[in-house]
Every structure is written in C-alpha cells, then in structure tokens.
Design a protein around this nucleic acid. Structure first.
Length: 255
DNA sequence: TGATGATCATTA
DNA sequence: TAATGATCATCA
C-alpha cells in the first residue's frame, strides 16, 4: 500500500493536511461522517473495536482521510492519535480519560514480531511539586489506570506503517495483585519525589511503574522539590509502565 | 538486544 | 508551560 492517500473527496478538497498529526484535528473539527462521536457505553466502544480489529493502519487512515507518515520518527504519537480518532475519543490532549463519558483511557501497545510489547507505556506526568498531598488512591496515575482499553498494534520496524495491523483491543482494570504492585511502586517513588530525592531516581526503580524524563528536550525545566526542601528546576518526568508489566497483561488476556 | 534517557509533534 | 500522543537512539 502506498502513502499517497487523498483527502476524502467531500466538501473539503483542500483540507490543510500539512502534517500527519495536525490533519487529525483539522479533519475532526469538520464533522467528518467517518469519525464517530464518543461512545456512550463500554459496549458501544467494544463494538467499534470489533470492527477495527485486524485492520491495517493504512485502511484506518484511508477511511478517516488521515495521511500516513513514512516513518514514526517525526510522528511518534501518530498511531495513538489515529486510533483515538477512529474510536471516537474526545479528550484530545486534555488531562482526562480519552473517552470522557465512560471514563476509559486508551493505550496503543506496540508489539514486536513475537507479540511482545516493544516499548514501555506512558501513564501520566509526575507531580513534582504538588504530589505531597497525593495518596495512591487519589492519584492521577491510579485514575488513569483504573480502566484502560489496550489496543495492540503491530510494530516491527521492517513493516511499513500503513501495513501494520491492529490486534484485538481489550478492556482491563488492575486485579488486586497488580494494583498492589502499582501502589507500592507509586508510594516508593512519590516518597522520594516529596523528600527532594528526585535527583537520585532513575528508571531502574519500580517493579511495574517507573519514572523517566518526559519533555521535548533536556533543556525544558519544571519546578520540583530539592534536597533541602527548596524549590528547584528539573526536567519534567513521567510515570511509565514497564513492558514486562504490559506483557503480563497481554498474557492474562490471551493465554 | 533490552532498557534507559532523550526526543518529536500537537494542543490548551 | 504542561499536558496529550508516544517512539527514538544509544549503550551496557
């Protein structure tokens, strides 16, 4: 399949498809009939998932009039944005679940040729200053992970982006064991953040949940707590799920 | 080769 | 600036 997708031959022949990702927003605002409204129930969401399971990214892009990038180096979030559009996610880049009405977060899960996750999964930003008042129960991370629609996607580098296929999406909530691991990791990491020990946190901490840099580049700064309790500037961080954890989720679902 | 640290694009 | 969507690029 080629990359030469044409915009939909609708009332919108010159849609500003300037960049692959930018085209998502533009087309979504034009009431494109091929982009569904937000699902009103998990059942409706899963029905849409049944329709797209096994389809290629090229097919989904074609149906939505979205251009396929040649590679993902300059379009790292493209797959996620495409699937969100196809399924009717409405939260855009807000700090909300992707499907606001039903409180479901969506994550694509890139799989290698063996069906194992190729990457860790971003969860949310680490609250570097205001985490002191947080508990796991009320935390942003827990809210995000409470209900997740996992969307497996083929992701071998050899495979052209348009030819990569969706797997079978499935809904997940942490079971008591998983929740306990997540809570323990979160509490350990947030204690360090709150005690001004962020500087000694590396991605090696945490069994399932880890903290890594999350920013446009290393020069981006955000306020945090220093060793003496003072206010310092540091690189913004994010919580990520290790791929060993998401592999276990896959296995519990499919094995 | 897997994991860590770094980075890319977009939006509010 | 800080949040969203993530993958890239390098090194142990």
């Amino acid at each position: 399949m080629s990359n030469n997708y044409k915009p939909l031959a609708s009332d919108n022949p010159t849609a500003a498809v300037s960049t692959p990702v930018g085209s998502l927003r533009i087309i979504r605002t034009m009431s494109n009939p091929d982009l569904p409204p937000p699902p009103v129930s998990e059942a409706e969401l899963m029905e849409r998932c049944r329709v797209v399971a096994g389809r290629s990214l090229g097919q989904l892009a074609m149906q939505t009039g979205i251009q396929v990038p040649h590679d993902l180096r300059r379009a790292k979030g493209w797959v996620g944005q495409l699937v969100e559009a196809v399924l009717g996610a409405d939260a855009a880049s807000l700090a909300e679940p992707d499907f606001r009405a039903i409180g479901v977060e969506m994550k694509t899960l890139p799989l290698d040729t063996d069906g194992r996750p190729r990457e860790s999964t971003y969860v949310c930003t680490v609250p570097l200053e205001q985490g002191i008042s947080d508990s796991w129960t009320t935390s942003w991370a827990r809210r995000k992970l409470a209900r997740v629609l996992w969307v497996p996607v083929e992701a071998d580098r050899e495979l052209p982006v348009a030819e990569r296929r969706l797997g079978t999406p499935f809904l997940w909530s942490p079971d008591p064991h998983q929740e306990e691991i997540l809570r323990t990791d979160w509490e350990e990491l947030m204690e360090m953040v709150c005690l001004g020990q962020l500087g000694s946190i590396t991605a090696r901490f945490g069994r399932a949940l880890q903290i890594r840099p999350k920013a446009a580049n290393a020069r981006i700064m955000a306020a945090a707590i220093g060793p003496e309790g003072e206010r310092i500037l540091t690189n913004p961080r994010g919580f990520y799920l290790r791929s060993s954890f998401t592999l276990a989720i896959l296995q519990q679902q499919f094995d």
